[in-house]
Amino acid sequence: MDNAVHTSGASTQGTASGAPLDPDHPMELVCPAGTPAALQTAIDAGAHTIYFGFRNRTNARNFPGLNFNEEEAARAVETCRKHGVKPLIAINTYADAEDDAIWKRAVDCAADLKAGGIIACDIGLVSYAAKTHPDLPLHLSVQASASNPEAVKFYHEAYGVRRVVLPRVMSVPEIAELTAAVTPVETEVFVFGGLCVMAEGRCSLSSYATGLSPNKDGVCSPASHVRYEQDGDVMVSLLGDFTINRFDAGETAGYPTLCKGRFSSDARTGHLFEDPMSLDATTILGDLRKAGVKAVKVEGRQRGKAYVAQVVRSLRDAIDGKTDASRSSGTTHLMEGLGHTEGAYRRDWR
């Protein structure tokens, strides 16, 4: 992907259509939390909704030392309630065919805690949640990759799904068309953070290299298989047995994922799938609002409090009309590869 690349810390001018944000009808800001401390930071920074996951394979950020045990999750739900913030629990991996106990347990726990909803992708698990806990609001995860009205309507009619997180492959006009077609189902889109290779829920690159799957184990490039080596001033990143990148001295780095790797062929060496950079759709918030999008989401449960504080504050100010949303968020120093893109929303690479 080689689209709308901005690597300077300076703001980027212009929006897709220049649609203004209406402060009287703000979009819901959905923010990540990997730890209770990050959750408190998100609340303080102005999150409307916070999503987090349990410490196991049931969520797509199953990293060492990250996430919430059941006790912490209970406290997190309570804290959110106290501050008028909606807590969502991400159970966004696919259950094992032979044993889905931990996934069902996660759904039961979220229901017992009276969370504001769960974000799920496994159709069996969505069905289980709908039957067992009919009062538990269901959001369809981006991992389900539902990108047409038929798919969204099916999830709504069969299981009562209230909101769908759209895959990051759609342009703003496509989002507007789908949103209008699936009413009353709400649409939510990512506006900030890491970008995937646009095969969400279906990507097997990490599984190929490590045997562990982002979709089933919750680990894209599991830490146990990631290694960095210094070769003089050059940083080499390895995933399993594969060298996936070499960063020269002074060159900015990205996540150690195969999709951001650099590959060599006879013709050239370069990023085959996508460049290492972050999504920042701050400049098109007005267009997304106009497209009928109900909620905008920040990726990054694996990121720290500094990221959560600065990104959430910046987006909240833009949504509330306190800052000029036609300018980018000024958070380039927090971004992967220190560069940003508006991704598929603009699609100006076509």
Binding site: G250, T252, A253, L334, M335
Partner: peptide
């Protein structure tokens, strides 16, 4: 850092 260390940002910047 008041908000905690942004290790990722420092890592990305090398």
């Amino acid at each position: 850092a008041e908000d905690g260390p942004d290790g990722d940002g420092a890592f990305f910047s090398r």
